[in-house]
Design a binder for these strands. Structure first.
Lengths: 257, 257
DNA sequence: CAGCTACGTTGCATGCATTGCAACACTCAT
DNA sequence: ATGAGTGTTGCAATGCATGCAACGTAGCTG
């Protein structure tokens, strides 16, 4: 691995904590100021860091543009999107699509509820991994060893009394999700919000993404939400089919986007 | 500037276009495969690139997390947010907050409309810079030279017949925005959507952000939307006051390193 | 105002870290 | 099997990143 690049990249998470001046960056990197300066300059040229008016550095706009572009190029996202909107049309609730990647789960698409309710989730935002229904499905599919390793390393914040409290409980949740092929989050993240989720699988049967429908208690009860499960699973299966190329776009020229 | 870092960072926009394998990356960088490999490995260790199952590389999840974190640490965003939600409570329409940074304008906050309407905008997504009301305000405040330079370099896509067609027209728009201290977008981006925007200023009077209210014709006419202008300006001024204020709300637990 | 400190910046010599090469390991078609 | 296409590793040479020291500047403080 490259030392120079390694140092340069270490600056990014450092700046993510908040703006910092040259001295602070140099100190935390353990290098001479002049070295830090040149690294920062290079990052700046690529738009990854920005120098604000008080001369301190913070992360730059290009970072957002990159993340945005990358997300829109995910093929699973492209394939899934029309299915998600169709599901939203059918039930009216918020629909999410999420993927797992090296210890993190993040939303890569979202279709907003037609009801006037706000949900605190955002595309690109890391998911509350210990409680979210989609996270359970994604982690449940990992090989035993990795699954346990991840579960051990996680923290288990008690967002609500119904949040998953610790690693054993979480692993049990995963086991259940794996057996039944779907998962729920009943008020584990936000007291009044329930979710039901289903996995999207690739050609080899491995879970490549997960999707969920979320709705607050005030609109539908948890039981009512569960009646949507068959529909959610059908949608997920349709995406799986298309993604794994088995059902190459069955609707002739109807839903090209 | 550092050659190694420069090369490594050049990989990111390259991968933003889509996944690529080692050979492609090496070619486009103009370096030996082994060199590209080591750069990619370093990027991988930092989570910026991800190696998908077919061994090709694409941008990694950490990028999203970084962008997200950076956005949430913008102090202007933190200060503005409660004002934005209050404005949304008052009028019910979609509220945006945007900043300018080295040639790009991007949304850094959004409060969704209470009406069942979907708008195609997303936090972190670059703004349609030639037509958006917030973009006009942000660019209008640049020094003459830079303003013209930027205007010349832009492309002017005709999203609708009312889109800004070219640089001179755009510069005229900016001039107008600067004089009147507010701006509009009347169907310039999407046929049926109108926006009205006002600037947020720092202590030195320079524009640091801009906010807007957007609503589709089907809900309120352009004229009706304009009646909200005083409210929008008052909100923007309130944010300006707090942002440039001598006693900004004390940040708990923030110590200088 | 002088003098101080703290910070960002630049030129330069040293030597380490990066580079390209060539050989190896592997997968997949033919 | 055999070959062409990948990704990967050890190694030697030197290009390049590094730390140093000196300079420039801004902001305090006496």
């Amino acid at each position: 691995m490259s030392q120079t690049v390694d140092r340069a990249l270490s600056i990014l998470p450092l700046l993510a904590e908040g703006p910092a001046d040259l001295g602070q960056v140099a100190d935390r990197l353990g290098v001479h100021k002049s070295t830090a300066l040149r690294l920062l300059r290079t990052l700046h040229e690529h738009g990854l860091v920005y120098r604000q008016s008080d001369q301190r550095y913070r992360l730059g706009a290009r970072l957002f543009a990159l993340a945005q572009e990358a997300m829109e190029n995910l093929d699973i996202r492209e394939i899934a999107h029309p299915h998600l909107t169709r599901l939203n049309d059918a039930c009216g609730h918020t629909v999410h699509l999420a993927v797992y990647e090296e210890g993190e789960v993040l939303y890569i698409d979202k279709v907003d509820s037609r009801y006037p309710v706000r949900m605190y989730s955002r595309i690109g935002k890391p998911v509350a991994i210990t409680v979210a229904a989609v996270a359970k499905l994604l982690l449940a599919d990992l090989p035993e060893a990795e699954r346990r390793a991840v579960a051990e390393k996680l923290e288990y914040p008690m967002y609500t009394p119904r949040s998953t409290p610790n690693a054993p409980a979480f692993l049990a949740e995963l086991e259940k999700a794996r057996e039944q092929g779907w998962a729920t989050d009943l008020g584990g993240h936000e007291e009044s919000i329930n979710c039901v989720a289903a996995p999207v699988r690739g050609a080899d049967g491995r879970v490549v993404a997960a999707m969920s429908v979320s709705a607050p208690n005030v609109v539908v009860s948890a039981d009512e939400l569960l009646t949507l499960l068959p529909l959610v699973r059908r949608t997920a299966d349709a995406i799986s089919g298309e993604y794994s190329g088995r059902n190459p776009v069955t609707n002739p020229g109807r839903d090209t986007v």
